[in-house]
Amino acid sequence: MTVLEETNRSSPVSATSAAILDVRSVSVSYPGKHGQTWALKNVTLCVRPAEAVGLIGESGSGKTTLARCMLGLIRPTSGQVAHRGRNIYAIRNTARFRMLSRDASTVFQDPRSSLNPRLSVAAVVRDPLTVLHIGTRRERDAKVIDALQSVGLPASIAGRPVRALSGGQLQRVALARALAVDPSLIIADEPTSALDVSVQAQVLNVIRDIRAQRQLAVLVVSHDMRVVRCLTNRTIVMYRGEIVEQGHTEQVYEDPQHPYTKSLLAAAPRLASVMASTVPANEAASGTIAPTFAGQA
């Protein structure tokens, strides 16, 4: 708590206090061969408690840079990022990381490269608690089991080494680790891109359940519109470092305004439309299959 008090004094930024994270006209640039390269240009967004926000765009559109800015990992060239009303970049590094990692956790794309394969599952999930000095030893152990159970893993898995688990199980362990500190926000960067469809659905179900149970806010970063649509209420479309469209997820999905959003939607492989379009003419006419899919697509 001392950390929070300290930050309170050091950075009086008037921001929407309701927001967990508030990004105000943030730009990030890197020096390049031909002058500055802008990774983010004048981006403004906020994530409120219990809200599910999706961030979509192709590789290189600045999604991950924005997420890293929000986690206090990249100092913006201009603009401000506020966490519960406090400008996070006005705080020195250690304090900032401590403050943010208690309240905002991260789940990365590939659990195999983000979790230490030699540790046990329990050690991986307990790690953030130990680092942040949360609870006593016994309380930590209880939290670990609790986190594992809330992502649908049996407590018996706690002693197994990380390398022995499958991709879907690992991604749940990553989720459990993110949940262990009781954050109010989880930032998930391509949480299911490394998984098969069958397992993807398992993990998406888990994320939905956790959100419902814990009143958790999530920021889902993905290039896959289907995943974003599944998990979020509000969608932000990024292109070349700028926000080109945002709105209610269904609205963006059903009635995209920006040409880039349209092309992104058209590119997503849609089984339903593929199947509808490959139905032989006579079958489509007899109405056995095609209308079912076409109606829903």
Partner: peptide, 19 residues
């Protein structure tokens, strides 16, 4: 599994377990 994600069913339909 694919269809349920695409069409945003209330409950997605994974295949339980893994290979």
């Amino acid at each position: 599994a694919s269809m349920s994600i695409e069409q945003r069913w209330d409950r997605l339909a994974p295949i339980p377990g893994q290979v």
